[in-house]
Design a protein around this nucleic acid. Structure first.
Lengths: 220, 220
DNA sequence: GTCTATAACGGGATAGAC
DNA sequence: GTCTATCCCGTTATAGAC
């Protein structure tokens, strides 16, 4: 009998992260108080400062914990694809799916129950630019660069600058879906979803592949 | 000489709206204080409550002021297109451009100087879902329904449900660009922009049109 | 219709005991 | 490593003079 009823669980740090993830998703970063997090986690206010140092540092830890394995998976898939197509360029559809699928997997393990987790991503993008930009660069610049290079090789008729635009459009579609914005049902009764992940991915891949392959007409 | 140095300008209400727009864009809604707004506007704290009632009501007024004329322009363009193609369906590219261009025009008149205004849109989407959903529906459901119907007519080989997905993807690209996320430069040196508006629109229309026209293969 | 002054509250952070 | 207690600050909102 060490500390019987005081702490129900072991890792304080982990419990803080889990509670923060939940509340940031539900309420947003600015509206979530450290007090609320520590109540949810069943720990003390001071514990956050002890383990992380500040509220902002907590957000960073949270972000890195999810983004790192997700991007590792992205790179692994890309390596597999390049190995499989020995020397040649992987097929476009496979590239797109390799890029977007890990995000959906991450979302699922973030909250198997359903959609509130998707809010977490939407919330993130509205933090002060400085933080978002720094964290995004830290976690995504390597994967982004490698994929962009491969897309450019896969689309020799399009031109690097145009490919960069279209890569950006792919990111747009991905973040939109991850943030769950397609579930808002702006036009009543006309929402495409909710659909399961494989179907969502299939729709997106079809659309994006056609967009990437669009004939690249210059101005006039 | 009524009140010579006290108030430099006339409309207090208008000055509050302008100041709020600026600060919400720069700092986000939650991080912006009414104090900050009233200092920026050169008015008193109580004036906000007098003219709007609460901080949230101020956000609503702000949103409606921009969204309403923008969507009026969307509808006008759609009417023009349908009139021009007397009885037949307007060309897809023209439809897409009619849908996305008014947003860019709004962005420009919001802040002719440059990009900080785009943050305003990004910020908006991360407010509590309830508010965002209500405001979006209020302002966008009519335009959305009419455009979606026309897109469906323009793409008889695609199928209504698939068109709804692709319409959603178009909205994704649009919001991404409006929010200025393509300027973040995640992959160093590989950003497509900054480009002028006509060029941005041209790239988007090319990409989206091809996506909309993608052959619609069902599962398996 | 606009101001001053203040109420009533909750936030992040820290010091220091244990 | 974890707690209690507290500091200090900024917030929204309102009451009441002008």
């Amino acid at each position: 009998m060490g500390s019987p009823a005081k702490v129900l669980n072991g890792d304080t740090k982990e419990r803080i992260l889990a509670a923060a993830e939940k509340l940031f998703a539900e309420e947003g970063f600015a509206r979530t108080s450290l007090r609320g997090i520590t109540v949810e986690a069943g720990v003390n206010v001071a514990a956050v400062h002890y383990h992380f140092g500040s509220k902002e540092a907590l957000l960073e830890a949270l972000f890195a914990r999810r983004a790192a394995p997700m991007n590792a998976e992205r790179l692994a898939k890309l390596n597999d694809l390049e190995a499989a197509s020995s020397g040649d360029v992987p097929p476009l559809e496979a590239l797109i799916e390799a890029f977007i699928a890990p995000s959906f997997r991450m979302l699922e393990e973030l909250d198997p129950a359903g959609p509130p987790a998707s809010q977490l991503i939407a919330r993130f993008f509205s933090e002060p630019e400085e933080i978002v930009q720094r964290l995004m660069r830290e976690q995504f610049s390597d994967v982004g660069a490698r994929y962009l290079a491969t897309f450019t090789r896969a689309l020799p008729d399009v031109g690097p600058r145009e490919v960069a635009w279209r890569f950006e459009f792919m990111v747009a579609v991905l973040t939109h879906l991850l943030a769950g914005m397609h579930l808002i049902d702006v036009v009543p009764g006309a929402t495409p979803g909710p659909a399961d992940q494989p179907e969502t991915i299939r729709h997106a891949v079809q659309f994006l592949a056609a967009g990437f392959r669009a004939p690249s007409k210059g101005a006039a």
